[in-house]
Deep mutational scan, measured.
Amino acid sequence: KAKLLVLLYAFVATDADTICIGYHANNSTDTVDTILEKNVAVTHSVNLLEDSHNGKLCKLKGIAPLQLGKCNITGWLLGNPECDSLLPARSWSYIVETPNSENGACYPGDLIDYEELREQLSSVSSLERFEIFPKESSWPNHTFNGVTVSCSHRGKSSFYRNLLWLTKKGDSYPKLTNSYVNNKGKEVLVLWGVHHPSSSDEQQSLYSNGNAYVSVASSNYNRRFTPEIAARPKVRDQHGRMNYYWTLLEPGDTIIFEATGNLIAPWYAFALSRGFESGIITSNASMHECNTKCQTPQGAINSNLPFQNIHPVTIGECPKYVRSTKLRMVTGLRNIPSIQYRGLFGAIAGFIEGGWTGMIDGWYGYHHQNEQGSGYAADQKSTQNAINGITNKVNSVIEKMNTQFTAVGKEFNNLEKRMENLNKKVDDGFLDIWTYNAELLVLLENERTLDFHDLNVKNLYEKVKSQLKNNAKEIGNGCFEFYHKCDNECMESVRNGTYDYPKYSEESKLNR
């Protein structure tokens, strides 16, 4: 008799109507990190870190770059004969040098303040090359056809396309004075040089004057150069050297050249137009028929994500570079809930034993079982409120962090190594801060989002509990077992918050 009662009780308990509160689960393989956990499985997430590029040089917003090819900045601007293909260059979106560009200054020497000139050019998007001192009329008392084997072109001695090597005419090199007034309405880049012979005999042979000088002056520039005559090792078949100089001439300003020898005179100059998204990159990537809004030396990035880990040097509207390998923000729920887990921000989770793959029309909802059958029903209101809140948060985070910009490298010469090392340390410090901030932001927001979901499920549970009161009992896994019969209409009233407690209280009292 006792065995019969136990079996009867078990049958009745199993047959009781139930309603459970749960949440969506799926077959997603997404994982995120939080402050407290690593690799948390979630139903949905968004990636904030771009880690792919196309490996190509592309047009930037429809404008092609200027590819210097086998030449570098120095060779292009001075007019190395091997860089003749660059003479027609007028406009570009950015400038590309190759790491091993070999054609710079063909006659050995240095372009002074080269690093600063590169910085200036990094904001130039177009130029006009014009004859600042016409070759045939500007130097009537001097020979202007100086050439050298060091600047050979097609097997013949030649010289820079933008400079003139002035030497004596006959047996004399009379003092020369020439000036140019900038009437271009924009900055003009003027380049010139000073020749330093290897011996007094060479000085006399070329310029006749043993104590020659070169003077260059404008409103913002004033220097006097004296040739340094000295024996030097042979470089590119030359014992002599040429140093090259430049200045930016403001609109309306005048530049005056005065010399008694050794002047490498300007022939062509450049009127410059600035462009905020221009820059110089060093890259071996090849040019393709493609378009982008962000270019790196590795390749083009076409992404609206706020961060990238491809390269710190970028041109155009680019994500911020960070050292992170993963920045994924959760938008959905835990896919593998932890039992009795309390989140960092106070939300209680884990009283549900598992997510439901059968509930596909919402994030949170119900599963019921009664004599009429069983089924899932999503709670659309709480789901939609959660979707709206999380979507707004993700968009806000992306908008705040998605300050796209150009980031170019800084140039230092060989004598500025300590400054370069200090600059690298400062840049590394800023990069570490950006990386830390980005990672911390994602970790915190992921923790908040998961706790937010847990709290929403808990609130749904409490909503049902407050309606049923003692007409049902909690069975410990997020479910309630009714003390009365609850048909589909009754189940719907529980879900929509209109459950009639008094209607079922007498039946429940008897069954309790």
Score class of each variant (00 low, 15 high):
residue 237 D to A: 09
residue 198 S to Y: 00
residue 263 L to W: 15
residue 143 T to L: 06
residue 259 A to Q: 06
residue 98 T to H: 11
residue 155 G to R: 09
residue 28 S to N: 10
residue 92 W to A: 00
residue 38 K to C: 09
residue 154 R to Q: 13
residue 240 G to Y: 07
residue 56 K to V: 12
residue 44 H to M: 13
residue 116 E to N: 08
residue 125 S to A: 10
residue 52 S to D: 01
residue 206 L to C: 14
residue 253 D to R: 00
residue 261 G to M: 06
residue 67 Q to L: 13
residue 46 V to D: 01
residue 200 S to H: 15
residue 94 Y to C: 03
residue 91 S to H: 14
residue 138 S to N: 09
residue 40 V to T: 09
residue 260 T to M: 07
residue 11 F to E: 01
residue 151 C to H: 04
residue 110 D to W: 01
residue 222 N to H: 13
residue 99 P to W: 08
residue 147 V to W: 00
residue 187 E to P: 15
residue 18 T to W: 00
residue 128 E to D: 14
residue 114 Y to N: 09
residue 12 V to Q: 13
residue 225 F to D: 08
residue 155 G to I: 02
residue 225 F to K: 01
residue 144 F to A: 13
residue 194 V to D: 05
residue 65 P to K: 07
residue 166 L to P: 05
residue 270 F to N: 04
residue 68 L to M: 10
residue 261 G to Q: 01
residue 120 Q to G: 01
residue 82 E to L: 12
residue 62 G to K: 10
residue 20 C to D: 15
residue 155 G to M: 12
residue 269 A to R: 00
residue 182 N to W: 08
residue 23 Y to S: 03
residue 224 R to T: 02
residue 211 N to H: 12
residue 132 I to A: 11
residue 254 T to V: 15
residue 100 N to E: 04
residue 206 L to P: 01
residue 56 K to F: 15
residue 181 V to T: 15
residue 191 L to V: 15
residue 53 H to M: 13
residue 145 N to L: 03
residue 175 K to C: 03
residue 253 D to V: 00
residue 249 L to S: 00
residue 83 C to I: 01
residue 145 N to T: 08
residue 10 A to P: 08
residue 220 N to V: 05
residue 30 D to W: 08
residue 167 T to Y: 14
residue 268 Y to Q: 08
residue 238 Q to M: 15
residue 160 Y to K: 01
residue 267 W to M: 15
residue 105 A to M: 03
residue 268 Y to H: 15
residue 229 I to M: 12
residue 279 G to T: 14
residue 132 I to W: 10
residue 211 N to C: 00
residue 264 I to N: 01
residue 84 D to Y: 09
residue 197 P to I: 08
residue 34 T to D: 04
residue 88 P to D: 11
residue 235 V to N: 09
residue 193 G to W: 04
residue 36 L to Q: 09
residue 38 K to D: 02
residue 144 F to V: 08
residue 19 I to L: 13
residue 212 A to L: 02
residue 56 K to A: 14
residue 94 Y to K: 09
residue 121 L to H: 06
residue 2 A to N: 14
residue 91 S to V: 07
residue 164 L to G: 11
residue 185 G to Q: 05
residue 181 V to L: 11
residue 197 P to D: 08
residue 94 Y to A: 03
residue 242 M to W: 02
residue 150 S to T: 13
residue 222 N to T: 01
residue 50 E to D: 12
residue 107 Y to N: 10
residue 2 A to I: 08
residue 90 R to N: 15
residue 13 A to Q: 14
residue 80 N to Q: 07
residue 104 G to I: 01
residue 107 Y to L: 06
residue 197 P to Q: 00
residue 181 V to C: 12
residue 265 A to L: 07
residue 260 T to V: 13
residue 60 L to M: 12
residue 40 V to K: 08
residue 254 T to N: 10
residue 72 N to C: 10
residue 165 W to Q: 04
residue 130 F to G: 10
residue 180 Y to L: 01
residue 11 F to W: 12
residue 70 K to V: 00
residue 31 T to R: 11
residue 94 Y to W: 05
residue 263 L to K: 02
residue 123 S to Y: 13
